[in-house]
């Protein structure tokens, strides 16, 4: 409950910041698209599988938005986002069928390889995709209203914040569900999962679809925010950034992706402002420090502290109860003269 309240408060504060300082809207929305994508990557991280190619689903969604916006000029932004997500889902249904057979480095590299095939195709099919110049997207209507750029960006900020909350809630529900628990059980013991009568393959496939859908949202929003899609959206560097955020934030709770994104953007902004030539070095250094100091990420660290506090409280309650019982036993004991 506390997490829900904190999340809503954080969303309202972010909204307030965006409305007060309009220049912050673009970095906030783009930062949130990173967080949403990392949320998707964290689904598979729960099964111990790190994909180095999930930007592919962001890219599929973004290009679907661009193609549809070009083919159907009157299409609404909400419909475009939905179409982008459906395209991601359809791609994941097919790709997932064989990718989820693999584990560890093979899973990660196979996703990376597929994302780079897509990246190369988008760059080469110039007449269709605009090559590395990408495709421009004419600003669509939002919920039927045609807006000026500033109003559109504000509306997109609200939509992204709402989507962030809804997706985080959905993913967290999934983590606690039977499917989510079985997925995380695969990480520690796939053999046992099979010997309980589950299909580890099917559980992984379902998780993969969810992760692709969530990443799909990030791609569609990014496309609308930038008004431009390029193959870079699907590059392995982008996938690496999603993984970076996932590790930084931790996959123990849906909030981890958002904390990771805040950490990532903060390091990037501070480095750009004070050490412009060193931002990649500082990002790498941050990752090393996080892995050594908080191997379960920010959220894992918070969860450990909360669990420890809970144990301490329980122990204190038990100690109080037993000391009270001793006192009452002593007072009720007959006095021997």
């Amino acid at each position: 409950m506390k997490v829900v309240v904190l999340s809503i408060v954080a969303a309202i504060a972010t909204l307030f910041l965006g409305y007060t300082l309009s220049w912050t809207i673009t970095p906030i929305v783009i930062g949130l698209t990173y967080a949403i994508a990392a949320l998707g990557v964290s689904v598979m991280a729960r099964a111990g599988q790190i994909s180095f190619g999930h930007a592919m689903y962001s890219c599929i969604s973004a290009y679907t938005v661009a193609f549809l916006a070009r083919a159907m000029p009157g299409a609404d932004a909400l419909a475009l986002i939905l179409a982008g997500v459906v395209a991601s889902l359809l791609a994941a249904i097919v790709i997932g069928l064989f990718v989820v057979r693999y584990r560890g480095i093979f899973f990660g590299m196979l996703n990376l390889a597929l994302s780079m095939v897509l990246f190369a195709l988008l760059g080469k099919l110039y007449t269709l995709t605009g090559g590395s110049d990408g495709m421009r997207i004419v600003r669509p209507t939002m919920a039927g209203v045609l807006m000026e750029r500033e109003s559109f960006e504000r509306a997109l900020l609200v939509l992204t914040l709402v989507l962030s909350l809804v997706l985080a809630w959905w993913v967290q529900r999934y983590f606690r569900s039977g499917s989510g628990q079985a997925l995380s059980a695969i990480k520690t013991n796939e053999t046992r999962i099979e010997y309980l009568g589950f299909s580890a393959y099917f559980i992984m496939w379902k998780g993969y679809l969810l992760s692709a859908v969530v990443v799909g949202f990030s791609g569609a929003i990014l496309a609308l925010m930038q008004g431009l899609v390029t193959p870079e959206i699907g590059s392995w560097l982008r996938s690496g950034e999603f993984v970076f955020i996932t590790i930084l934030g931790g996959a123990g709770h849906a909030a981890g992706a958002f904390l990771g994104a805040v950490g990532f953007e903060t390091v990037k902004l501070v480095s750009a402002a004070y050490f412009p030539g060193l931002w990649q070095f500082l990002l790498g250094l941050t990752l090393i420090l996080v892995i050594f100091m908080f191997p379960t990420g920010f959220v894992g660290q918070i969860m450990q502290r909360v669990a420890m506090q809970k144990k301490c409280d329980e122990a204190r309650v038990r100690a109080n109860a037993s000391s009270q019982a001793r006192v009452s036993a002593n007072t009720q004991a007959p006095v021997r003269n």
Binding site: S177, L196, K206, L210
Partner: peptide, 16 residues
């Protein structure tokens, strides 16, 4: 988790 298998109920949404 084992009991969920027996009930054939692996929801995506409802808590375990």
């Amino acid at each position: 988790i084992a009991a969920a298998r027996r009930n054939k109920n692996l929801s995506w949404f409802r808590s375990l």
